[in-house]
Design a protein around this nucleic acid. Structure first.
Length: 218
DNA sequence: AGTGGGCCGAGATTACATCA
DNA sequence: CTGATGTAATCTCGGCCCAC
C-alpha cells in the first residue's frame, strides 16, 4: 500500500463523525453545523454524492491511515483480544475513538478466523487427496495379495489330494510334508497370518478347513 | 431462584472505497 | 461505467455478570 497524498486523505474524509459525539476525533477537521449527539448505533443512511465533506459541510473520515493500520496490526499480532484499557491506550496513541479500535479488532478477528478456516480447509483437502491415493494403492496391493492367496489355496488343495493318495496307497510311506518343495507358505510370507486371521487350532482340520480364508473375501 | 440491565464478542450485513 | 473485492461500521443475538 502506498502512502496517501493529501488529496487522497481529503477524499477519504467520509461518514464517521456523524455517528459519534462531537469532539471524539481529534484528527478530524471540525464540522460545521449538524450537532451529532445521538447514539452511534443507528443504521447508516445512504449518502451517495455526499463524499469528501461536501453538502452539509461535515468532514468525515473513513479509511485508517497506513500507520494506524500498522500499529493496530502489531497490537493484534501480540494479542487478539482487546481489553478496554488497551483499547483506550491504543485509541489515544492513534487519535481514534476506542470504539473504532474495538471495531477494527472485531473485524480483524473475523478476517483472521476466516483465513484460518480457509487454511484448515486446504490442509484437510490435501490430506484427503493423499489418503485417497493411499487407499487406491492399498486396494491394488490387496488385489495382488488375494490372487496370491488363491494360488496358495490351490496349491494346498493339490498337495492335500496328493497326500491323501499317497497315504491310502501306502500307509507306511516315507512321504513327509517337509519333503515338499518349494515351501509354499514361506514363499508368500504367510508365516504370520495367524496373527491377522483366525487359524484353526487342530492340525488335522487344516487342509479341509481352508474355508476360513473365505471370511476374508467380502 | 428468577429477572432485568449492561457489557462483550461473534456473525451477518450494509455502505463505501478501490481497482481491473 | 461496472462488477468484484476489501474494509469500516452497524445490527442482532446470545452468553456472562451483577444487582435487586
Amino acid at each position: 500500500m502506498k502512502p496517501m497524498n493529501p488529496e487522497e486523505v481529503d477524499d477519504q474524509m467520509v461518514l464517521i463523525s456523524q455517528y459519534y459525539p462531537d469532539g471524539i476525533y481529534s484528527q478530524f477537521v471540525p464540522e460545521q453545523g449538524a450537532a451529532m449527539n445521538s447514539k452511534p448505533r443507528r443504521r447508516r443512511k445512504k449518502n451517495k454524492g455526499d463524499r469528501g465533506g461536501a453538502g452539509d459541510g461535515v468532514m468525515r473520515k473513513r479509511k485508517l491511515s497506513e500507520e494506524q493500520v500498522n500499529m493496530l496490526e502489531r497490537s493484534f499480532g501480540s494479542e487478539h483480544k482487546l481489553e478496554s484499557e488497551r483499547a483506550d491506550r491504543l485509541a489515544a496513541e492513534l487519535g481514534l475513538d476506542p470504539r473504532q479500535v474495538a471495531v477494527w479488532f472485531q473485524n480483524r478477528r473475523a478476517r483472521w478466523k476466516s483465513k484460518k478456516l480457509e487454511e484448515e480447509y486446504s490442509k484437510l483437502k490435501s490430506e484427503h487427496e493423499t489418503a485417497v491415493v493411499e487407499k487406491c494403492r492399498l486396494e491394488t496391493e490387496l488385489l495382488k495379495l488375494k490372487e496370491q492367496l488363491q494360488e496358495a489355496e490351490k496349491e494346498i488343495h493339490r498337495l492335500s489330494e496328493r497326500w491323501d493318495g499317497v497315504s491310502s496307497n501306502s500307509p507306511s510311506s516315507s512321504f513327509s510334508i517337509e519333503a515338499m518343495d518349494p515351501p509354499f507358505l514361506g514363499e508368500f510370507g504367510m508365516e504370520g497370518l495367524g496373527n491377522v486371521f483366525y487359524v484353526p487350532e487342530a492340525e488335522e482340520n487344516y487342509a479341509q478347513g481352508l474355508e476360513w480364508n473365505t471370511f476374508y473375501y467380502m
